[in-house]
């Protein structure tokens, strides 16, 4: 499916979606409250069928975080990038999509572990790579300081 067609369909599904500039994929911002329902719709709608979440990442933008979902359809081959902004840096929270994409469960755990973004309704939100007893913040945040292990260049 061409990006233009995809764009039209997305607008039909979610009128408030903002489109970002991205040469590679169709890239949209989704309001965090609509996020879960929208993703469910994307997966289940017959002409989109975005059934494969191949990447889920968190980006620290210093004022807020974005969660980036890379979705693709194994039926039609089109891809889509969703972005969800969190409100502020303190206690960021986004709805979990683990019930829609099973793989998201551990990608979200990773994001929680390294960035400290909470995913509501996540089945098992624990630290993944780091020890359970690791409490000194979240390493992948830009303001993370560790005098011993990080050498500033």
């Amino acid at each position: 499916m061409e990006q233009e067609q995809l764009k039209e369909k997305i607008i039909a599904l979610l009128p408030e979606a903002e489109f970002n500039v991205n040469k590679q994929y169709l890239d949209i911002n989704v309001p965090s409250d609509k996020m879960h329902a929208f993703v469910k719709l994307l997966k289940e709608s017959d002409d989109l069928k975005l059934d494969y979440l191949f990447c889920l990442s968190g980006v620290d933008w210093k004022t807020h975080f974005t969660i980036v979902y890379h979705l693709t359809s194994t039926f039609f081959g089109h891809s889509l990038v969703l972005k969800v902004k969190t409100t502020g840096r303190e206690n960021p929270e986004v709805a979990s999509v683990a019930d829609i994409y099973a793989t998201a469960e551990f990608h979200e755990r990773e994001v929680y572990d390294l960035m400290g973004i909470k995913f509501s309704d996540h089945p098992d939100l624990r630290r993944l790579f780091l020890d359970e007893t690791f409490i000194e913040g979240f390493p992948l945040r830009k303001d993370y300081k560790d005098e011993i292990n990080i050498i500033e260049r």
């Binding site: 990447c55 990442s57 469960e105 990608h107």
Partner: peptide, 14 residues
């Protein structure tokens, strides 16, 4: 600014 690596084994493990 940010480099995320989506590694195959990460998904495969779980």
């Amino acid at each position: 600014y940010r480099l995320k690596l989506r590694t195959p084994n990460f998904s495969n493990l779980f």
